[in-house]
Structure formats: structure tokens, C-alpha cells
């Protein structure tokens, strides 16, 4: 057991815990997006920031990836943390404004303005789907590609992956997809319509990489322009194909 100083309180934690795990143990609420207990931590969404170190030489770090060390000083809701976190939420809103997860975060932390042009890309590149596929489902069908502002998640060459078993884990875990998907039939409450239709989407859209990809429903792993390319290649009906 080692000692860290958490919000001015000396507490005991297990060696090897991340700061986030320590905070959760002691009941401190730290917002997260790309974190999932059953998957390895990624540290990409920058929501779980905490302020580390003795003032004035402090820095911010993602608590999900920062390891606890003897004597570590951690503060969870300083001005710097709040300002940075709120900006992260504002950025997320500009990417995925329709995601209830992001909307809830905005509402909870008082992010009231959205000063960036909205892109409606839905994918926040949190990587949960990648880690789900790789670590839980042992699929390794999807992954990160490119870098910087061009980064995206997709299958190799943006076509149906040989190793994809259509388990749906990626859709299940996606924070942008959650509580939102409406599909082509908005009255359907449970999004499984594609498998219930006759013929099922999986049969028709053979080259699609996931059966949720259709007319802009999810398809987070396939970007706008790739949508068009795939639509054309697979001869999707115009009313079903999103331009």
C-alpha cells in the first residue's frame, strides 16, 4: 500500500492503481468517456483530468493512465481542471452534438456555449470500439488509421473485414451511438431492425463492415466520403444512401 494526497487528504491506495481508480475507490466522481473498467485505459478523451504535483509546479494529467506513486499530490477540481475539462466538452459537442452522452456531460458541467462550427461527425475517436474488438472480443477487425485531424477508425481498406464476426461489440460500447440510433424506421425503439427486416441488411449489404452501417445510422467507423464511395460500389438504393 502506498500513500497519496488526494484533495488534501492522505489516503492509502494499492500500488499499481491509476489515479482514476484511486479516486473512484474514495467516491470521487471523475467524468470519463473513453474509459471502461473492462478495457485497458487509453487517455484520449482528456475528460478525466486531474491536477498533479505541488503548486506552483503542477500539471494536468489524465487520471485513467497516471499511476499512483508514493507521495503523489492530486487535486480533482481545481480551476485549471475545470476550464480544461469544459473546453473538452465544448469540443466534443462540436463533433457529436446529437450524442446524449455528450449532451449530458455539457449539461452537468455547465457548458452552455458552442463556439466552434459543428461537424456532425459523431465519432469522438475515443477508441472504445477498437479496444472492445481487440481485447474483449479478440477480433482485431477495426483500428485507428491516419493521424492528426485526419485520424479515423475503420477496417483495413474500408471494406468488410474477414475477421469481423459481426458481434456488435463496437456498437454496444460506443458513447456516441448510445441512446440515439434511430435507423430508417424512427418508430423502432430497439435498434435491431436491420436483423429483423426481410431481407436482413446483412444479406443485402454484404460488403458493409458492420451491419449497423446504413444510411448514416452509426457507421461511425466509416467517414462521410467513404460512405459515398461504398454506397456507389455496393449499389445501394438512392433513398437509402446518404450523400
Amino acid at each position: 500500500m502506498i500513500t497519496i494526497i488526494l484533495n488534501n487528504l492522505e489516503v492509502q491506495v494499492e500500488e499499481g492503481w491509476s489515479v482514476l481508480e484511486a479516486c473512484k475507490f474514495y467516491g470521487l466522481e471523475i467524468p470519463t468517456l473513453c474509459y471502461n473498467e473492462g478495457l485497458s485505459p487509453y487517455g484520449g478523451c482528456r475528460l478525466c483530468l486531474v491536477e498533479i504535483g505541488k503548486p506552483p509546479n503542477t500539471k494536468l494529467a489524465s487520471s485513467c493512465t497516471y499511476p499512483c506513486e508514493e507521495g503523489l499530490i492530486v487535486r480533482t477540481d481545481t480551476k485549471r481542471v475545470i476550464n480544461a475539462r469544459n473546453m473538452m466538452i465544448e469540443l466534443m459537442l462540436s463533433i457529436a452534438p446529437n450524442s446524449k452522452t455528450v449532451q449530458d456531460l455539457a449539461s452537468k458541467f455547465g457548458v452552455k456555449q458552442l463556439r466552434f462550427t459543428v461537424r456532425n461527425e459523431e465519432c469522438l475517436l475515443c477508441g472504445l470500439c477498437v479496444r472492445m474488438c481487440r481485447e474483449q472480443m479478440d477480433g482485431k477487425a477495426i483500428g485507428f488509421q491516419n493521424r492528426g485531424h485526419n485520424k479515423k477508425i475503420s477496417t483495413p481498406f474500408d471494406i468488410r473485414s474477414e475477421v469481423c464476426r459481426l458481434c456488435g461489440g463496437c456498437i454496444y460500447i460506443c458513447p456516441a451511438c448510445q441512446l440515439r440510433c434511430h435507423g430508417p424506421n424512427p418508430d423502432t425503439a430497439v435498434c435491431n431492425a436491420c436483423l429483423q427486416m426481410d431481407p436482413t441488411c446483412v444479406d443485402v449489404y454484404d460488403q458493409a463492415q458492420c451491419w449497423m452501417y446504413d444510411a448514416g445510422r452509426c457507421g461511425t467507423c466509416v467517414r462521410e466520403d467513404d460512405n459515398k464511395k461504398n454506397n456507389q460500389e455496393q449499389g445501394l438504393r438512392p433513398d437509402e444512401a446518404k450523400s
Binding site: 483500428g143 485507428f144 488509421q145 493521424r147 483495413p156 481498406f157 475477421v163
Partner: peptide, 18 residues
């Protein structure tokens, strides 16, 4: 090496072109 990992590397670095 899983194909997706190779693609990740191939698309990350500018020296490569698909």
C-alpha cells in the same frame, strides 16, 4: 501481425502511400 495493425502503421507515417 494483425492486418489492422499494419494498416495503422501504413497510414500513420507519411512515407507510405496506399
Amino acid at each position: 501481425i494483425p492486418l489492422i495493425d499494419i494498416i495503422s502503421v501504413a497510414t500513420f507515417y507519411k512515407a507510405f502511400s496506399l
